[in-house]
Structure formats: C-alpha cells, structure tokens
C-alpha cells in the first residue's frame, strides 16, 4: 500500500488504522504462541512473542504505557494458559523496566541492543513467574528452580534471536505514525 495515500486520509481514520495494525500485530503474536514451527524451537521451548512485543512497544514509550501494555497482554496470556500464577505481573514489569532504560538516550544502535534487552527481560519475566510458583507452594522448590534455569536460558536465547523480526516492522510503523502526527 502506498504510504503517501494514507497521509491524505482523515486523521481519525489514520488513528484507527494505527490501532488496527497495533492490535493486529498482537493477534499475530498470540497466534504464534501455540505453534512450534521448525527452527523456532529449542528443546520444546519457543520464543516468547508477547514479551518481544512488549519490549518493542516500551522501548520508546513511558514506563506507564509500557506497564499497561504488559498488563493487557499478560491478562490475555492468562486466558490462554492458566491464571495462577499470572503473566500480567511479569509482562507489566518487563514493560516498565524496558521503558525506564531509556535506550535511545544512551545507545543509538538498534539491532543488538534490542536483542540484549529482550534477553535480559526474558530472564526477568521467567524469574517473576518462578517466584510466584515458589509462593504458591504447589510444586517443590528444587523442581521450580531447576526448571527455571532451563526455561529462562532457552527462552531468552530464542526470544532475543527472533526479536528483530517483530521489532523492526513495528518500529518503522510507529516512527512513521509519529512523524505523521507531528507534521
């Protein structure tokens, strides 16, 4: 589609299109979660697409916006798996911390820094879930934390490697939208 054409649209339809694309990208992430495509899997673990999305969203936004996005996606993931322990807390923290990093102030480079942020945040998210399991007292401590090591590492590696495929299109789109708003 021609971007020039969209520039002539009514502002409200532009905003609607922006939200449709944002919501659409979330839907794609949700649909990617239960699939295990060849090459996207490491010992049964697949990339955490919702985490990548939350990082991509929060990198250039305020901590509050990041936390809200994490909360929303976490609630949806709760529905898809099991609400106890909740994913909303871990993803909201991820959104908050990512926004607090204020990456663009320190690092101009994009490709590796986002992968690194996703790596760290995947570890944070899995640790928060493991802590909730620990408080819940349903599984044994040793089991939770050995499993945590395995999941945190493989999910962090896979998510950080697959992060750019989601991050770059979204970043380009949101940059273009904000340039349109300023014009």
């Amino acid at each position: 589609m021609n971007l020039k054409e969209i520039e002539r649209w009514h502002p409200i339809s532009q905003v609607a299109l922006n939200w449709a694309i944002t919501a659409g990208s979330v839907l794609i992430c949700l649909l990617m979660l239960p699939t295990r495509l060849p090459g996207m899997e490491l010992a049964g673990v697949s990339p955490n697409w919702l985490l990548i999305w939350v990082v991509a969203w929060s990198v250039k936004r305020s901590p509050f916006q990041g936390a809200i996005a994490g909360l929303v996606l976490g609630l949806i993931q709760d529905g898809l798996t099991s609400p106890h322990p909740t994913h909303a807390l871990s993803l909201a923290l991820v959104g908050f911390f990512t926004a607090r990093l204020r990456k663009q102030r320190y690092i101009q480079e994009d490709f590796i820094s986002v992968a690194l942020i996703v790596f760290a945040m995947a570890v944070v998210a899995e640790t928060v879930i493991a802590l909730q399991f620990t408080l819940q007292d349903k599984r044994s401590l040793a089991e939770i934390w050995t499993y945590h090591q395995f999941i945190a590492l493989s999910s962090a590696i896979l998510s950080s490697l697959w992060a750019p495929i989601l991050y770059f299109p979204l970043k380009r789109w949101w940059e273009w939208v904000s340039s349109l708003e300023q014009a």
């Binding site: 949700l30 979660l33 239960p34 699939t35 295990r36 049964g44 673990v45 697949s46 955490n48 993931q77 898809l80 798996t81 099991s82 994913h87 899995e126 879930i129 399991f133 499993y147 999941i151 999910s155």
Partner: peptide, 14 residues
C-alpha cells in the same frame, strides 16, 4: 493436535 502450550511453565496441548 493443533497447538502446544502458550507458555513454558505449563505442559498443555490444544
């Protein structure tokens, strides 16, 4: 079987 679990902590299939 159309999908595996949407999260690493749960062993589920769809």
């Amino acid at each position: 079987v159309i999908g595996r679990s949407s999260d690493h902590w749960w062993q589920q299939i769809t």
